Simulated scan of single mutants.
Amino acid sequence: MIYLDYAASTPVSEEALEAFSQLSRHYFANASSLHDLGTQTDAVVSYAKRYLAQLLDTTSDEVFFTDSGSHSNIYALLSLAKALPKNKNHILMSQMEHSSVFSAAQMLREQGFWVESIAPNASGEIDEQCLSNALREETGLVSIQHVNSETGIIQPLARLCPILKRSGITVHCDAVQSFSKLDVSHTKLGADAITLAGHKVYAPKGVGVVSFSKNVPWQSVYSGNHQQHGFYPGTLNAPLIGAFVASCEQLWPKREKINAHLQNLRAQLVTQIRSRELPIELFDDKRGAILPGIFGAFYQGLQGQYVMLESNRHGVCIATGSACRVGLDEISPTLKALGYSAEKAAQFFRASFGKDTQLSEITAFVDVLEQLRPT
């Protein structure tokens, strides 16, 4: 099979697998235990926190682990909201967030918060005007995803965060898709809370990260929890955490080379689609900045689900959008926010590439798309 669904999940790297295997054998103790094996396991976790803190430009005390990117989003938002002043009960989220952020929004509404959404501009960006239209005197927290997993749109957080910070507003950023590809440090983005997920960077599933910038107030979601200073309950999974960091250590020095590779793959895909005059409308023709590894398009006259199923039948794995929304009949919130009708949105499909994707695989995918051309 040709795998072109890296935005949903990446294959686990050999380095991450080896780290997980070795750590599972030798560092299996509870990191909170006071005996020597517990202390040794805690050293693995402490190293991971220091490494990630350096990448994200914060302190190791501000780095916390969860068991997924979704839980990272939910716990980050709930803990930040819980610490807001009483007169700052208005929370904003973009209309193109991951489903876990919308889940957190519903929880916050049930807790009495006033939660609203920010509509993007015609290019799919949350710009200064979009932000200005949505802000209220009571706004205390804003959540904007750095890169959308369906469309690849990159939000200009480095421009927006200073505006919010000047108004004393806390900013959360879901950087699950952009981490290891773009600079997502607190200094670069300006966000107060950043969330990551291991399985998007060639590490095993089961580990997520929340990083806070220094001195950002948050409160424990559950009273009585003492793990990780009360942020997230449960015994830390040191082997998964170590595997995540092992993968990051391999990726980080190569990220510019990998990005150039992804840019070339995208360019070749676009060139081949256009040269063969396929009835495919490229999503990024009318959009702003797009992450190179994510390619969205509309196959005119065909359902995106049909394109996905037929591609699979021919040995190519692609998607129709976020894997977290598979099985839902309604239009994707992202495509709806961008102004697409239900009929148009149904034609959408997504291919996404990774460090191991080959140009020959792109050509094979276009061959499949050509076979699907309506007669």
Rank of each mutant, 00 (worst) to 15 (best):
K181W: 08
K88I: 06
I153S: 02
Q145D: 14
S103N: 12
Q106K: 13
A158W: 09
L141Y: 05
E128I: 12
C173H: 01
A134S: 15
N121F: 11
L108C: 01
E138S: 15
E138P: 00
I126C: 11
S100C: 11
F102R: 09
I169V: 15
A119Y: 05
D183S: 08
H199P: 02
T170A: 15
E150T: 13
R109C: 10
A105D: 01
M107E: 12
R109Q: 15
I144P: 04
S143G: 05
C161G: 06
L182H: 11
H90W: 00
I163Y: 04
L135V: 04
G112P: 05
A197L: 05
D127G: 11
Q111E: 15
S185G: 09
L160Q: 07
L141G: 07
A122E: 15
V101H: 01
H199K: 10
K88A: 09
S100D: 12
I144N: 03
I144Y: 05
V142A: 10
D174H: 02
I153Q: 06
L108Q: 02
E137I: 06
L135D: 01
H98D: 14
G168A: 11
V115E: 01
N121T: 04
R166A: 15
L196M: 14
W114D: 15
A134C: 05
A134L: 07
E110W: 00
A104K: 09
S143N: 10
F179M: 11
V142S: 04
N148S: 14
H186G: 13
G152T: 03
Q145Y: 00
Q155D: 05
A105M: 09
S149E: 09
F102V: 06
Q145R: 13
S123F: 12
V147Q: 02
A175D: 06
K165S: 14
G152M: 08
F102M: 12
T151D: 08
S94T: 09
N121D: 15
G198P: 07
E116Y: 02
A122T: 01
I126N: 06
Q129K: 12
S149T: 12
P120E: 02
Q111R: 15
L92K: 03
S185T: 10
L141W: 03
I153G: 04
S149N: 12
H98S: 14
